[in-house]
Write a protein that binds this DNA or RNA. Sequence first.
DNA 1: CCTCAAAGTTCGGTATACCGGAAAAAACAT
DNA 2: ATGTTTTTTCCGGTATACCGAACTTTGAGG
Lengths: 106, 106
Amino acid sequence: MANQLGNKLNKLRKDKGFTLESLAKAANVSKSYLWELENREVKNPSAQRLAAIAAQLGVTADFFLDDDASQPEEKHLDDAFFRGYKSLGSPEKEQLRKILETFKKS
Amino acid sequence: MANQLGNKLNKLRKDKGFTLESLAKAANVSKSYLWELENREVKNPSAQRLAAIAAQLGVTADFFLDDDASQPEEKHLDDAFFRGYKSLGSPEKEQLRKILETFKKS
DNA sequence: CCTCAAAGTTCGGTATACCGGAAAAAACAT
DNA sequence: ATGTTTTTTCCGGTATACCGAACTTTGAGG
């Protein structure tokens, strides 16, 4: 395994139970390229694709960029949650907001 | 001006008093390419370069990736919601996440 | 052992990221 | 207005991102 990005990607993918193909499909990239990202030396993916992959794995694109400090797990969860929330329609969002309010009173 | 990324980039660059050339030098990209990012239709920069540029402008790479599909007012609600969520304790967050998951099935 | 599917790896090709330098256009002096 | 400098726009070329499809490996079940 070649580069920092590749290591993180491979580990995270397996942790989340993705195969190359399933992640490729989910993130809308080819599995061959995904494999290159994990195993080849030089790769320098576009921001969009990296973000798409990161989103599927429940992290932000930055996680792969700042090569050393991994984010605390809690932040991953929060960011993933927010992304999911934003993908909802307005009525569902509204419901969640209501629920949040009741949580905040305790 | 062509695309969302271009708009943000151009505005931010000028706000910070950068010229194409000065920002190019600082972020280690060519000014011609910087110009393309701001003015051409299609561009899809690499994560590394975008991050470098973002850093010089004092923002994170995500700032440019944010597709902000939401209208400005809705976005405001979203952000407020996220702040509220983050202020919760872990168990409450976990509950919200579960609720989110059920919403996402439809 | 053998089979067959699922996972991973390789490869050839096309589109485009990205660059250096030069032209054009502002900006701003004199 | 004319030269000078600073900033923006254009262009030709090379490297590489990214893909589809074919090939190889792995490993569970008979």
